[in-house]
């Protein structure tokens, strides 16, 4: 019984050998009597300080458990005598940072947006702050890359429905688009030419061909041009250059809010969809709105105040 496993090389107590006081000759160290295939284990004692260090780690752990949050409970954990928590520490750090930046935020809040953008420190702060606010409030519609989608404006490009200057962007963000409950909201409505019987199917098809020809995406259509001049040019301009005062998109460029697909254009003429955007001044403070505007302006399509592109409708 006692030798079960011995043949397989398991360690065993060598009952047949007296191990007491056995000294390994080359090292002069006593052996434990344990033997593996003729190799014996030396009985080298651990240093005692090692034992004390081992105990000290236990004491350290116990003190730690008492002082710091340590034991997980069902919903929470023990709080520890020191009352320290990594989250409260982060909260403190955030507060400290907020206090340190408070006067810069104050200046952003009080200065006109043009002056904020002219100050390099404030602009950098606004771009970073606006980026953070954008990720929280805007990406749901405009996308993480601010490139929008069908029905949601791409904010990277140079095509602006309501204007691409700092002030125009700030105005759009602050009061939204077609937001009921804000008197200053951007408001416009395109008639439902097909649904309300103002244009028949053939006329809509013709004017669709004409709209595509405006940006060189199709051949000219004289019948469509007539329909366009009679029904559309009032808002979209004689050559489809758009009108930012009424939020009429430019039709003569390569950027399309609702796709350049003829079917999509026909649908939009028949019964137009109207996008909406909340009035952010009702949810965010003015400093954040300014930061958002400066961030959006910085994405690459921002226009200078008074520049040629900024004045509505004056597109070549």
């Amino acid at each position: 019984m006692s030798n079960i496993g011995a043949d397989e090389g398991f360690p065993r107590v060598p009952e047949s050998e007296p191990h007491r006081g056995e000294i390994d000759q080359p090292t002069g160290t006593a052996t434990t009597g344990h033997e593996w295939d003729g190799i014996k284990e030396l009985n080298t004692p651990m240093p005692r300080w090692w034992l004390w260090v081992f105990y000290a780690t236990h004491v350290w752990a116990l003190v730690y458990i008492v002082l710091f949050p340590a034991i997980p409970l069902l919903k929470d954990s023990t709080t520890g005598l020191l009352g320290w928590h990594s989250r409260s520490e982060v909260a403190e750090e955030i507060d400290t940072a907020a206090v340190a930046r408070a006067d810069q935020f104050e200046r952003i809040r009080n200065l006109p947006i043009e002056q904020v953008a002219d100050d390099e420190t404030l602009r950098n702060l606004a771009v970073r702050g606006g980026e953070s606010a954008f990720k929280v409030n805007c990406v749901q519609c405009h996308g993480a890359d601010a490139a929008g989608g069908i029905g949601f404006a791409n904010l990277n490009d140079d095509d602006w429905i309501w204007g691409g200057s700092l002030e125009a962007i700030e105005q759009t963000i602050a009061h939204g688009v077609r937001h009921a409950g804000d008197d200053e909201t951007r408001l416009s409505e395109m008639p439902a030419f097909g649904r309300d019987g103002m244009l028949d199917r053939e006329q809509i098809a013709a004017v669709t061909r004409h709209v595509l020809s405006l940006s060189g995406a199709g051949p000219a259509d004289p019948a469509g041009a007539t329909v366009f001049a009679d029904n559309c040019a009032a808002c979209h301009g004689a050559s489809g250059e758009g009108n930012r005062d009424v939020g009429a998109p430019r039709l003569s460029d390569a950027v399309w809010l609702y796709s350049s697909d003829p079917a999509a254009i026909r649908a939009q003429i028949h019964n137009p969809k109207h996008g909406a955007m909340p009035s952010w001044s009702q949810r965010l403070d003015p400093a954040t709105v300014k930061q958002l505007a400066i961030y959006v302006h910085s994405l690459g399509g921002g226009e200078e105040e008074g520049s040629r592109e900024a004045s509505a409708g004056a597109i070549d």
């Binding site: 490139a147 990277n156 490009d157 095509d159 460029d253 390569a254 690459g300």
Partner: peptide, 16 residues
């Protein structure tokens, strides 16, 4: 990384 490129009104393409 996002957007990789942006098409502008005149059809030109801009990278950042």
């Amino acid at each position: 990384r996002a957007p990789l490129f942006t098409t502008l009104s005149d059809g030109s393409v801009r990278n950042g």
